[in-house]
């Protein structure tokens, strides 16, 4: 596969490390049901046959964490964005 890093341009996937689902959010550790929420956050993943938003780390390049939208049936990549885009203060 090739991933179009928004900082470095298109690069081979051997430069990247895969983490997994980018849609999960670290729960509020102070929540009453934090234990249950963290269990879901750490262990439970959907496995959709189709479009999947997933985290890749460009360790062999700019060290950005990226959210890659990839069809896991065809490997077609429709979008690549910085994981921290828009969240900067």
């Amino acid at each position: 596969m090739r991933i179009n890093c928004p900082y470095c341009g298109p690069r081979g996937n051997e430069e990247f490390a895969y983490l997994g689902d980018a849609t999960v959010r670290r729960p509020d550790p102070a929540a009453e049901d934090a234990a249950a929420q963290f269990y879901e956050y750490v262990y439970l993943r959907d496995n959709p046959a189709g479009s999947h938003r997933e985290l890749w780390y460009h360790g062999g390049g700019c060290r950005s964490w990226l959210v890659v939208t990839r069809n896991i049936r065809t490997h077609e990549i429709s979008d690549v964005a910085f994981a921290d885009a828009g969240d900067k203060p």
Binding site: Y57, G59, A83, D84
Partner: peptide, 20 residues
């Protein structure tokens, strides 16, 4: 060493991007 660096970048960029 490599894994910790990746983990720290994850914590910063994915979990808490607002931290300076």
């Amino acid at each position: 060493a490599v894994r910790v660096m990746q983990h720290l970048e994850f914590c910063h960029q994915v979990l808490w991007p607002a931290l300076d």
